[in-house]
Design a protein around this nucleic acid. Structure first.
Lengths: 202, 202
DNA sequence: GCACCAGTTGCCTAGTAGGCAAAATTGCTC
DNA sequence: GAGCAATTTTGCCTACTAGGCAACTGGTGC
């Protein structure tokens, strides 16, 4: 997949910048820092930042892009005759146990406070959907009718997004009860309900 | 719904600016104009533009927000015992016959050429989903289990988006055959396929 | 008519986007 | 390991943008 040290390093640069931006956003809020602060923390020049991201919002949101390769590995381990919906359900159940979800939850909460972040987070989610979809298409695209896989991924993406939003609403409503713990418990069942509808129809 | 002339005028201002931005983007491409050009064409000051939109991309994408009130009216005319999935199918079928869809198609095509537009178009689509969803929730929210309506709207939104993307890919692939005419015909059947999966499960 | 309030505008400044070319870094080949 | 080519990083520069503030304008309700 990678072509060499150079690509790895390029990737690392982007991640370092994104990570610095995300941390600053957590510490000071999205309006509490400027790009100069980000590059200073990450140890790069402002001009380099511009080579990777068009604004700080894009950098912050980009940390939400994660877990696609892991998902691919998980998917490959499943029996090949398992229906795709069920395979996705299984994979997402496992993925939701990682801190990929924690980061995403944090980003979703951040979007509430800073709406300018929303477009960029949506873009990240959309790119993840495409990446996951392409992964499946490249491995087993010929096993399904042409439009099936995109439709499924679209529906899963939309429904799961809606479920997460709804859950976040609930969590933010009872503010600062031990929301994280309770939420972690409920993610699984929300996911199950979501996939039940997707599997059996609305 | 409106409170008076002032609100109407405010709305008109935003639409005038958005319309001017959209036209300029069509004529010169997204990188062929600046905010000053927009406000000059619309007859407002640059400062006023900033009160409505944070950048030209946001203004251009905002013209894609349309048809929600019409959808609400259509929805109200349907028999109240029609299952919600089928009601949505019917409404979207009718909506897809309007030029709301033409504008959206144009915006989607524009996104391919100018990726910086993507986040803002996604944001618009997301807001439309919420608006439609809230509309249904306010009218008939108590007729469905708590998470059902958001999940359905999420799934519909995601699947329809994926279908449109796929269709646009096809249309752009056979570039400039009479894609518009053929596409218009196929939108309906793509929608039917999409809703068949949503209705009966994947 | 009068007080009020939302929308519009100009002014202003810190912040941003992105072209260009020089410098540094790495991958590849011998 | 030494040199060449490709790519990345960087500084410099300039047009452009975001958004606070204060003044002004025009609907709105009494």
């Amino acid at each position: 997949m990678e072509r060499g040290l150079r690509e790895l390093k390029r990737e690392a640069t982007g991640e370092a910048l994104a990570h610095a931006a995300f941390e600053l956003a957590r510490e000071r809020g999205l309006d509490g820092f400027v790009i100069d602060d980000v590059v200073q923390r990450a140890g790069y020049s402002r001009r380099t930042f511009a080579n990777y991201f068009s604004c700080k919002e894009e950098a912050v949101a980009s940390v939400g892009f994660a877990g696609v390769e892991d998902a691919g590995a998980l998917l490959a381990d499943l029996p090949p005759d398992l229906p795709l919906v069920d395979a996705l359900h299984t994979v997402m159940r496992q993925q939701f146990a990682t801190d990929t979800l924690v980061t995403m939850r944090e980003l979703l909460a951040m979007v509430r406070r800073y709406p300018t972040l929303e477009p960029y987070l949506l873009s990240v989610q959309n790119r993840m959907r495409h990446a996951a979809q392409d992964l499946v298409l490249s491995v087993a695209g010929d096993r399904y009718p042409g439009i099936y896989v995109p439709l499924l991924f679209g529906a899963v993406y939309g429904a799961v997004t809606a479920a997460l939003e709804g859950l976040l609403d609930v969590q933010l409503a009872d503010d600062d009860g031990d929301a994280a713990g309770r939420g972690a418990m409920e993610y699984g069942s929300f996911l199950d309900v979501t996939f039940e509808y997707l599997r059996n129809g609305f």
